[in-house]
Design a protein around this nucleic acid. Structure first.
Lengths: 207, 207
DNA sequence: GTCTATAGACGGATAGAC
DNA sequence: GTCTATCCGTCTATAGAC
């Protein structure tokens, strides 16, 4: 009955290896070794290597859709916006920095981020996922936040789309730098802090 | 006597394939096919697959060091800064947008950017190159520009390191998006334009 | 479900003729 | 320098015993 358990172990090992070596460079024997079974046994759980990847992407997509802050938030829903009524720029700064620390260290998320990055030119599906998860959904969420804060008078009037980009995209690059050179995390977190504070300072009402 | 010519063709074909498939997933037979020779003939020019990559990286590094605007600029050299004396924020906006269009379309540069991106977790040397070429050198250049424009009174006083990041890093992400989804280039160039203009507007003296 | 054994394709690399 | 032919290893995948 540990079929589903072994299946999950296989998917976890595959994500681990795909995220550093890439799909093509990863051998089924490596995945089998990581799980502790023979490579022929993988075929009891998956039809082949490609199906391991397909299943992995399906699972990542499902988890992302159901858990990510960026897909659940609906600023155009009055009920959602009402719940954010007490948000101040200072509170937003804290929330953003905490969220950054989370997505930086969560094993699933960071491995998925790396895998999508290195496979984006070889696999259209991963290219789409990469754009949606790490660009479009994040920007859409923060564009909503910018509109909200402008309407509340917490931020100066401006182009919400560009403001969201100016807030988020430097952070996107710094996340990538941390993935590439984890030793620089402390330095990068300090930069992010200065960046977010300056953003709200320079875009604030009394700037 | 076309040894050096064939050698260059091999390097060009290798870069072309490595930049989309990655090093491991690219077979010597593919490189040979692209050049129009048999794969055994590759060994007349290189000791093996690894040496093709080594030579390619060496060449990219040499070309980058000798040609890139970001490595040649020395803001701490008074002679260099003096030559920029007539730079206005409006002229800077134009220069930046022109430079973006260049590095977005130059075949060598865009392929190198993609290759370094997808190989960064498998090869330390490429990780270093990626950080230097597409992060550190760019930021250093623009930090110098920010200091210069602040000193000249064209920009409000602020943290030049963070200002450089807020100007450059969104562009870095958008370049990556164009690499991944070339169809969106027009939309992305429009975003870059709005971004750069807003940056100089909001950081300008009379903001 | 996991194992051993093996098929069959393809990878990088070498030898030797031209 | 390029070619054909070949070696040897590893890859994905399958067959069949337990």
């Amino acid at each position: 009955m540990d079929r589903s358990n072994t299946k999950q172990q296989i998917l976890a090992a595959a994500l681990d290896l795909f995220s550093t070596q890439g799909y093509e460079a990863t051998a089924l024997s490596q995945i089998a070794d990581a799980v502790g079974i023979r490579k022929a046994s993988l075929y009891s759980h998956f039809a082949g290597k490609q199906e391991i990847l397909d299943c992995l992407l399906e699972q990542l997509r499902a988890r992302y859709d159901s858990r990510s802050l960026f897909t659940r938030a609906r600023w155009d829903d009055p009920a959602f916006a009402a719940r954010q009524a007490d948000i101040t720029p200072d509170a937003v700064v804290g929330d953003i920095l905490a969220q950054i620390r989370y997505i930086l260290h969560d094993p699933q998320i960071s491995k998925a981020r790396k895998m999508l990055l290195i496979e984006q030119f070889r696999n259209e599906r991963m290219a789409r996922l990469q754009t949606e998860m790490n660009y479009e959904n994040v920007l859409r969420y923060f564009e909503g936040l910018m509109e909200f804060l402008i309407r509340r008078g917490s931020l100066r009037i401006g182009d919400p789309e560009i403001m969201a980009a100016q807030l988020c995209l430097p952070i996107t690059v710094w996340l990538g730098l941390c993935d590439r050179e984890p030793d620089r995390e402390e330095e990068v977190l300090a930069l992010m802090d200065r960046h977010v504070r300056r953003f709200f300072q320079i875009n604030g009402r009394e700037a």
